[in-house]
C-alpha cells in the first residue's frame, strides 16, 4: 500500500509542479509578444501628442468627442509621465524628437439617460468603447486596445468621457515608453 502511495506521489508531483510553472510563466510569455501596455519593451518618449477622437462609423455627438479629447489631455498631464503634452496641430510638437501620438477611434456608443438611471437604477447607462492606439514617431503601434467608459448609476452622461480618460491615463501610466 505504501509503495503504491509513493509511486502515485512521485508521478503526480512533477505534473503539479509543471502546471504551477505554466501558470506562472504562461501569462508573462503571452504578454511579451502582444505589444500591449504591459509590454517589456522600452521606448524613450518625453512628449505625447493627443489627436481628436475619430467618430468612425459611430454616431457620437460632438460634445462627447470634445469632452473625451479635453479629458484625455487633463488626465495624461496628471500622470506626469511626459514632459510635454501637445494638443493636435501644435507647431511645437514637430520639433519634439521622441514624440508618441495618442489616437482614439469610436467603436460603440450609447448615450443613455441620466433620468432613467436615477429613477430605475438598472437602465439608462451611458457607455462608450473606443480603440486607443499609441504610436511612435515612425507610426508603429506601442499600445493598441479597446477601452470602455461608462456611467451606470449617478452623474451626467458626459461623465462617461471622464471614466474613459481615467482608464487611458492608467494605461499610459503602466506603459513603459
Amino acid at each position: 500500500m505504501k509503495h503504491h502511495t509513493r509511486v502515485a506521489v512521485s508521478c503526480i508531483s512533477p505534473v503539479v509542479l509543471a502546471c504551477a510553472f505554466l501558470l506562472i510563466v504562461g501569462p508573462l510569455w503571452g504578454q511579451t509578444g502582444s505589444g500591449d501596455s504591459k509590454s517589456a519593451q522600452k521606448f524613450s518618449a518625453s512628449s505625447i501628442q493627443i489627436e481628436p477622437t475619430d467618430p468612425g462609423d459611430v454616431r457620437m455627438p460632438p460634445e462627447f468627442r470634445m469632452a473625451i479629447y479635453e479629458n484625455l489631455i487633463t488626465q495624461i498631464e496628471k500622470t506626469g509621465k511626459f514632459q510635454h503634452v501637445y494638443r493636435s496641430g501644435d507647431k511645437d510638437a514637430a520639433s519634439a524628437p521622441d514624440l508618441v501620438t495618442l489616437h482614439t477611434t469610436a467603436r460603440a456608443f450609447n448615450k443613455g439617460s441620466q433620468k432613467k438611471r436615477e429613477v430605475t437604477t438598472v437602465t439608462g447607462s451611458t457607455s462608450m468603447t473606443l480603440n486607443v492606439r499609441i504610436t511612435d514617431h515612425a507610426g508603429q503601434p506601442l499600445v493598441d486596445r479597446d477601452v470602455q467608459g461608462k456611467v451606470r448609476f449617478m452623474g451626467e452622461n458626459l461623465r462617461a468621457t471622464y471614466d474613459f480618460s481615467k482608464k487611458v491615463a492608467h494605461i499610459v501610466r503602466d506603459t513603459t515608453f
Binding site: D90, E118, V119
Partner: peptide, 26 residues
C-alpha cells in the same frame, strides 16, 4: 425627485489657438 429635469442647449466649439493647437469647449 429625479424625474424633475429641464431641457438645455449644449454649445460645442472646436477652435485653434495661436500656436495651431486644437481645443474644444462645451
Amino acid at each position: 425627485l429625479a424625474l424633475f429635469s429641464h431641457q438645455v442647449d449644449v454649445l460645442t466649439l472646436q477652435f485653434k489657438d495661436a500656436n495651431g493647437g486644437f481645443h474644444g469647449a462645451i
